[in-house]
Computed example of a mutant assay.
Amino acid sequence: MTIAARFAAIIEGLCRAVAARGAKGAFGPASQPLVILLWSRLRRMAARFAILAEGAPKPRPRARRAGPRKRVRGPDLPRRRAWLLAPVPEATAAASQLRALLDDPQARALIAADPRFARLLRPLCRALFRRPPAIPAPPAPARPAAPRHRAVPATAAPHAAAAPPATPPLFHPPPAIA
Rank of each mutant, 00 (worst) to 15 (best):
L37E: 11
A162E: 08
A63S: 11
E12R: 14
G28K: 06
C125F: 03
P169T: 00
A9I: 01
L42W: 08
A151P: 00
A50Q: 10
A9T: 09
L77P: 04
P153H: 15
R79C: 04
L170E: 04
R65D: 14
P132M: 01
R150S: 11
P158H: 06
I3L: 15
P168F: 05
T155N: 07
R116P: 03
R130N: 14
L34Q: 10
P144A: 00
M45I: 03
L170T: 00
F129S: 03
A156Q: 12
A157Q: 10
A53M: 10
P147D: 03
L37M: 13
R80L: 04
R62F: 01
A137D: 06
P165F: 05
P78Y: 00
P165W: 04
A8N: 14
L84R: 06
R73W: 12
P87D: 00
R130V: 12
P144N: 00
A47S: 08
F117H: 11
P75S: 09
A156P: 00
A47M: 03
F7L: 08
A82P: 07
P115E: 12
A23D: 14
I3A: 15
W83H: 09
L34D: 01
L37V: 07
A82D: 13
K24D: 11
A66W: 00
A46S: 13
A94S: 15
R79I: 01
L14V: 05
T92S: 13
R126H: 07
A30H: 10
A176G: 03
P61C: 01
H149L: 10
R69N: 03
L98C: 13
R69C: 08
A26F: 03
A118L: 02
S31W: 06
R44C: 11
M1H: 10
R99P: 04
L52F: 07
R48M: 10
R99M: 06
V152I: 14
A178C: 12
A140D: 08
R6Q: 15
F49G: 08
R143G: 00
P87Y: 02
L98P: 12
A109P: 05
P168R: 14
R71M: 13
R122I: 02
P136A: 05
V18W: 03
E12H: 15
A82T: 10
W83L: 05
P133R: 09
A53D: 15
A23C: 04
R150G: 07
R130H: 14
R79D: 10
R69E: 12
P147F: 08
W39C: 07
P173I: 02
P123F: 06
A140Q: 06
P175E: 15
R16A: 10
Q32A: 14
A142L: 14
E54I: 02
P141I: 07
G13Q: 12
R148W: 02
F49N: 03
A118S: 14
I36Y: 06
A112G: 13
I11S: 04
P68A: 11
A166E: 02
